[in-house]
Write a protein that binds this DNA or RNA. Structure first.
Lengths: 233, 233
DNA sequence: ACAAAAGTGTTTGGAGTACACCCATGA
DNA sequence: TCATGGGTGTACTCCAAACACTTTTGT
């Protein structure tokens, strides 16, 4: 992308993309390589981008996500902006910014988004020069990410935990189209950091009219197969 | 404030300052005068400012509020950023921006904050060249404010309504130090757009251990005086 | 005495929680 | 036949909501 499209190199968007692999909550991180003296230094960062000219914030976030995953129509919401003057004070981050943007930038303010995606959708990481991978959110908190991305992910997690209690329907953004009740319950428990009772959970979901039982069972499990359900808005 | 302190004229903070006058929910607006040809045009805007060099977002918002009201230690939280390319497309806004900042600015992205203040605190509007006034939030929605400030206030209102259900303690940020139960209930009802039952409300607040009854009654009312309470965190 | 708001209990329905056993299936 | 998770019902508790009359005080 040419610099002629860049309006304001002091503002970016970053996306915290969550997924659920059936067991753990994961987030997408981009590999970043920095040539330092004659060393090659690797670390990870959130997918993000400068905001282009004539592009609004949501569009910028949406573009980042589509460029990265090839997916459209996914849940994506702004949740917070980060603009601490020393969020880009690490020399490595300064160096990387100047290399990438070819501009001298003091600090960059970023508008952070959360996205929820179905991890089983085969993701095409289209962005040419970037590799993305899923990481357990618990692992991430022990890693040292670029900029203040650890903080952004921690805040995103808190936000999404809250949001899922307000809008429980968002859980289905993280599940595949067909799922079993225990998959739903395991996701619920991971999000809410609890262990819910199997029978009470069944009762609760029984009164959700947007959950419909299919005439299908799961396959390939070494025990009694569970019934599959789907979500209907 | 000299331009030498300004780091990035493309980002600002705006504060939606809410107050409660005992009856209606109010917000603070700044008078804005624009000389247009030989006409003087008046309208209103949110208190806000460009973000200064080495200043983080919360500090910028806090500064705006202190400059305006002279108050410190008030509830102030970031809630959303606004960056639509045409949020500053109105010629009047473009003109005003250029006059105020002496800079040619394409669009400005703003990080919006909500503040809750006790309307009975005598406010010193210290900012030399600005006049601020309280307006009913219902009135505001019919007014034509600068930029996208109508939208920002609408979103702020929605945010604070939600936040007050999550943290009911925030109600006390809007009440004077001593208050009656019906003042509290009226505030609650205005926020939640409901009419709550007097007895149930008493019962509810009876089990709040942070509400303490004083040995004082309200004064100057033409009927039986109500007991005063105070809030203790 | 009257107007106006303060203050006070009981009942009911729905939601959440705790808790244990049989069933279906693959290995 | 055994190991593994699937699927089911009841009893109790707590909270929210509905609902009406007496008390206090100023005019």
């Amino acid at each position: 992308m040419g610099n002629e499209f860049i309006n304001n190199p002091h503002i970016s968007v970053d996306c915290v993309v969550f997924g659920f692999d059936g067991e753990k909550l994961k987030a997408l991180l981009i590999e970043r390589s920095i040539h330092e003296q004659n060393e090659l230094y690797n670390d990870k960062k959130l997918p993000g981008s400068i905001i282009l000219n004539q592009e609004n914030l949501d569009d910028a976030a949406s573009r980042v996500l589509t460029e990265l995953t090839g997916l459209k129509n996914i849940y994506l919401r702004q949740f917070k902006s980060f603009g601490d003057p020393n969020r880009s004070s690490n020399p490595r981050d300064v160096y990387w910014l100047e290399e990438t943007t070819k501009l001298k930038i003091g600090r960059i303010i970023t508008v952070a988004y959360v996205a929820l995606i179905k991890i089983d959708r085969k993701i095409v990481f289209t962005a040419e020069n970037s590799t993305a991978n899923w990481f357990d959110v618990t692992e991430i908190s022990k890693m040292q990410l670029a900029f203040d991305h650890n903080k952004i992910i921690a805040d995103a997690l808190q936000h999404i935990r809250h949001q899922l209690t307000v809008e429980p329907n968002l859980l289905f953004e993280l599940l595949s189209k067909k799922f079993t009740i225990s998959q739903l319950r395991m996701l619920y428990d991971v999000i809410n950091q609890c262990k819910s009772d199997v029978r009470n959970f069944q009762k609760k979901i029984a009164q959700m009219d947007y959950l419909i039982a299919l005439d299908e069972l799961e396959e390939g499990v070494p025990h009694r197969a569970a019934r599959l359900y789907k979500y209907k808005r």
